[in-house]
Write a protein that binds this DNA or RNA. Structure first.
Length: 219
DNA sequence: AAAACGGGGGC
DNA sequence: GCCCCAGTTTT
């Protein structure tokens, strides 16, 4: 699959899943009204967690604290309780607390806006850092989660083993103006149609361009 | 009853 | 590279 077809896929998916209105991407629904801190914390909560649950857990936590200073007033137990349904709650609570501490101590309560600084934060890897850059600071970034990794490979656009390889390949092959659309569209697409197991190829709007129609497993 | 879930860290 | 975190939803 060449570059033009990949972009064609993005365009088709964009019609299928209009911006801010994707069927299940509720984490994104209010993101333009969220502060960078809220987006960062939501993204931490979202690790290995569906976005509807993420959205609910985030709202509950933000009722208690929506900035790093207030967050530090909460105990780990209180944070864990608020985000409990999202899973990995103890790890995430610790991470949220540490991040808040670092923001207050080193960044005057702000979220750093460079990839290097974000990656230094505990619990923040490439996926999280890139998503924060894209959503909080409107910077071009390709956020490669399991959906982006899987779908890019299924389409045959890349042949990679790790998300990091996928990120590099996509950055090479896709013009920058499309970078921020990829994650949005592939997550919506991946959760509803191009699912990891038993994808709904018969309902897929881009099956004609897919090299793996009828696959039954992840890649 | 299993497997899967918008990863990341520790080893 | 492997294993852990974890409850809820889906198959």
């Amino acid at each position: 699959m060449d570059k033009d077809r990949f972009i064609q896929v993005l365009n088709i998916l964009e019609k299928e899943f209009p911006k801010w209105n994707a069927p299940v991407v509720s984490l994104m629904a209010k993101r333009d009204k969220r502060t960078p801190f809220q987006i960062l914390i939501s993204t931490v909560i979202s690790l290995r967690t569906k976005d509807e649950i993420t959205a609910k857990a985030s709202e509950k936590l933000f009722e208690l604290a929506d900035n790093p200073h207030d967050m530090l007033k909460l105990s780990e137990e209180e944070i864990a309780r608020a985000i409990y349904p999202a899973g990995f709650y103890r790890n995430k609570a610790k991470t949220i607390k540490k991040i808040s501490e670092i923001m207050v101590r080193d960044y005057e309560g702000n979220v750093p806006d460079s990839l290097e600084e974000l990656l230094k934060l505990p619990g923040v890897g490439r996926k999280t850092a890139n998503l924060v850059l894209a959503l909080s600071f409107n910077k071009p970034a390709i956020c490669v989660d399991t959906h982006v990794h899987r779908i890019s490979n299924r389409l045959g656009f890349v042949k990679t083993k790790t998300p990091e390889e996928t990120e590099k390949e996509l950055m090479k092959k896709v013009p920058q103006k499309y970078w921020n659309k990829i994650n949005d569209l592939f997550v919506a697409f991946g959760q509803t149609i191009c699912k990891p197991v038993s994808p709904l190829c018969s309902k897929c709007p881009v099956s004609e361009m897919c090299e793996k129609v009828g696959v039954n497993k992840s890649r």
